[in-house]
């Protein structure tokens, strides 16, 4: 426990750098295409990579609570906000890239996409759900909102599910990869349901640790 906290000083910058690496790699591919190869369709490559990391980081954020409960280590919580914000960073970049580079602000087509293409509709809905979470990620907002902060931040559950559906509905025939992500999401959310299941009252049982009580 104390060791983990001591390592935080080094680990946090490392995790930060790792979370930033995919975007830096993509930027390098745009800037130096001869050195960093994004393939024959760089727009699609960037779009897919941002989306994939958005989903991975969302699931990583959702993994913090189960990891804490399984290991009894509160230290995990020190990384949750950073992971969540990086997930949002990738979701926002994914959407922005689609609007600005892929569709070049073709609003009629963008509106049609959001309204008529189910996979884009659910993807956009996931972005909207995450927006207030990113906006209230500061310690100040957390204090101000008190108990409501916890309730608000449960929006990450539907957002992650919609992210999985967005991925699933986008593929043509080979659903193995989106199915793997959906399975991980199902385990992480299922774990929470399992923990909340009604249990017979046992006197003297250890109380479950309060959820998300850390401020860091």
């Amino acid at each position: 426990m104390r060791t983990a906290r001591r390592w935080r000083h080094y680990l946090k910058p490392l995790v930060f750098a790792l979370c930033l690496a995919p975007a830096l790699w993509l930027a390098a591919g745009v800037r130096w295409p001869a050195w960093v190869d994004l393939g024959a369709n760089p727009v699609e490559k960037i779009q897919h990579t941002l989306g994939l990391w958005a989903l991975r980081l969302l699931l990583a954020t959702l993994a913090i609570t189960p990891l804490r409960q399984l290991t009894g280590q509160v230290e995990w919580l020190a990384y949750r906000r950073m992971l969540g914000l990086f997930a949002f960073f990738h979701v926002a970049a994914h959407l922005l890239f689609y609007v600005v580079v892929d569709q070049q602000f073709a609003w009629p087509i963008l509106l049609e996409d959001v309204a008529e293409r189910p996979f884009i509709t659910v993807g956009f809905a996931a972005f909207l759900l995450l927006l207030p979470l990113a906006a209230t990620s500061t310690a100040a907002a957390q204090r101000r909102l008190g108990r409501r902060w916890l309730a608000l931040h449960r929006l990450i559950y539907p957002a992650a599910l919609l992210g999985c559906v967005h991925f699933w509905w986008q593929v043509k025939a080979d659903i193995r990869e989106p199915a793997a992500y959906a399975a991980v999401a199902a385990i992480l959310l299922g774990w929470r349901l399992y923990r909340r299941r009604p249990r017979p009252a046992v006197t003297g049982a250890a109380p479950t640790p309060a959820r998300g009580s850390s401020r860091d």
Partner: peptide, 22 residues
């Protein structure tokens, strides 16, 4: 006639190193 899941109105020309639109 759009594909049910995406628009067929425009297309992207393939080309390494290209960030051009549709």
């Amino acid at each position: 006639v759009d594909h049910p899941r995406w628009s067929q109105k425009r297309e992207r020309r393939i080309g390494a190193g290209s960030l051009s639109g549709r």
